[in-house]
Design a protein around this nucleic acid. Structure first.
Lengths: 134, 134
DNA sequence: TTTATACTGAACCACATGGTTCAGTATAAT
DNA sequence: ATTATACTGAACCATGTGGTTCAGTATAAA
């Protein structure tokens, strides 16, 4: 979905390093936006699994599961290896570091924003005290 | 998208509290999976804005922007208030705490999983030393 | 009172998504 | 050599998504 090109030299979020690509975030947040896929990650956190294993666990056709694994694989959350006729799925190298960093950054920004609002409210209160009810 | 009901009493992720609803995560990760929407959050972190402001900044119709704001609003990332004929958008109450917690939890799980693998490799190395090349 | 502004909702569009079935291919087991 | 297993790919389907236009409504400005 990429787009968002607001003709600013600045990046997609305050503090963004060049490594933060919008497309990457689009894809990894989208990958996480499905409960089945989050479940697959959980499962692979416990033990490696074949497509068949996963398809059974999540009550889905092999083809359907293969697609989910493909999506997770494309964003690096899962890696697979074909051994004989079975494809082994394991957790991939992505620890979601940048996504976690983005979230942390957002929460910081959120705090800053609301501290600022608090200050304004504070000032209004002071003003009111000195103005009105003397 | 809800679904994922693998007939287990356990929740959607190890350590999930009842507060973690799959639907909620589906929606908030999906909301974050669009670069424009992440940009809107950034913008509102700097200052409140009207639909018109945002639509201009992101070169989009009012209707289009309204939809994005609606999506962010539904997951609590944005709140809006209509003042006269303009709708003011601000950051909402969601600081993405649970989403951040999920990510942190995943990374922990990931670490545990790979520590375990390291141990296996370690054992194999020891075994090989005592077995083969004596 | 007229006119401009700011939004809103319905309807449409192309394309993505999450799933399926069906027809294969490759590998393992008998 | 035959049969069963495990996947794979193409094609289809219903629904969702990100965007648009068009036709309003409500409010503010002149």
């Amino acid at each position: 979905m990429v787009q968002y090109n607001p003709a600013r030299s600045q990046a997609y979020f305050p503090g963004d390093s060049p490594a933060y690509s919008a497309a990457r975030f689009d894809a990894s947040f989208a990958a996480l936006s499905d409960a089945t896929r989050r479940g697959i990650l959980e499962q692979l956190g416990r033990a490696d699994a074949s497509i068949t294993d996963l398809a059974e666990k999540f009550q889905m056709t092999l083809t359907g599961m293969k697609k989910h694994v493909g999506i997770l694989e494309r964003v690096g959350l899962v890696t697979t290896e074909k051994v004989g006729r079975v494809r082994i799925c394991r957790l991939g190298e992505s620890q979601l570091e940048e996504e976690a960093a983005w979230l942390a950054n957002y929460r910081q920004l959120w705090d800053a924003r609301f501290d600022e609002l608090d200050k304004v409210v504070e000032e209004l209160k002071l003003k009111e005290m000195s103005d009105g009810h003397t």
